[in-house]
Design a protein around this nucleic acid. Sequence first.
DNA 1: TTCATTACTTGATTGAATCAAGGAATATTG
DNA 2: CAATATTCCTTGATTCAATCAAGTAATGAA
Lengths: 140, 140
Amino acid sequence: MALPNGPVTTSSEAEAVLFDLVDVYERAYEAAAAELSLSPAQACVLGRLDERRGMGALAEELGCDASNITQIVARLEALGLVTREPNPRDRRARLVARTPRGDEINHRFTTAFTFARTAVGRLSPDEQDQLTALLRKALS
Amino acid sequence: MALPNGPVTTSSEAEAVLFDLVDVYERAYEAAAAELSLSPAQACVLGRLDERRGMGALAEELGCDASNITQIVARLEALGLVTREPNPRDRRARLVARTPRGDEINHRFTTAFTFARTAVGRLSPDEQDQLTALLRKALS
DNA sequence: TTCATTACTTGATTGAATCAAGGAATATTG
DNA sequence: CAATATTCCTTGATTCAATCAAGTAATGAA
């Protein structure tokens, strides 16, 4: 379990709740991945493969080094969740795609990761809209 | 940089904004730590030492194995940011405390980690209260 | 006093992340 | 077209986080 990333002392209640949210979110994500014997990074990459993608595209989207993706995809491949096919249009490149088993595991993961759904579900539709608007403004 | 932990496809806008928030928060935390050549975990532990604490207390608070704390504290100690003093009341235990330099670095970290402050600051006091209430409800 | 428990450390292992360097294919440009 | 640069990815090395099993030393309880 990754350590929480948050200040202990916050100057406002809103900040404290933000920190709580991030912490609980992360733990829930990690727990859902762990249920399927996946690391968070593996679950993350697997989740980006609704469409087949090149290694470089994954790295750019996830904001990390390509060699990091090489590593993670290699483990997913060893687990039989992903394939690395040659790209017919560019023989330097590889196209990563989920296997049927990868699809299944990914589906089970999205089912197991209920946190965001559940949290949002505690709010009425109006409240959900308010939350969306407030967070958008806060993030702008 | 840790990979983002979020589903690509979300069933509601609120969920998507939650994911964005978590992602941006994490990256900001990591960036602030990196500015001071700290890992997120090191920044986290350093931040919990406003009061001196035992290793076990840190582990419990952070929800991880004691040996993980041993490791992280050892690195902080090597950096001169923390001391491990014997606990006079229990010679098995150690009390971890920030050094003056640790205080300074921790202060610089909390200054550098502006994300939550800035995000909340974009909202009016009323909006901050609304956000707090909504998130509390969502997290309940 | 014996025995269990607590507090922490050590050692081993796995995996994420980053960097430097390199191979192979493609793109550029002279 | 040939030479060069660039892109795409991999490999190897390193650092650190995290977990587990095992161990030491001190405390507490029977």
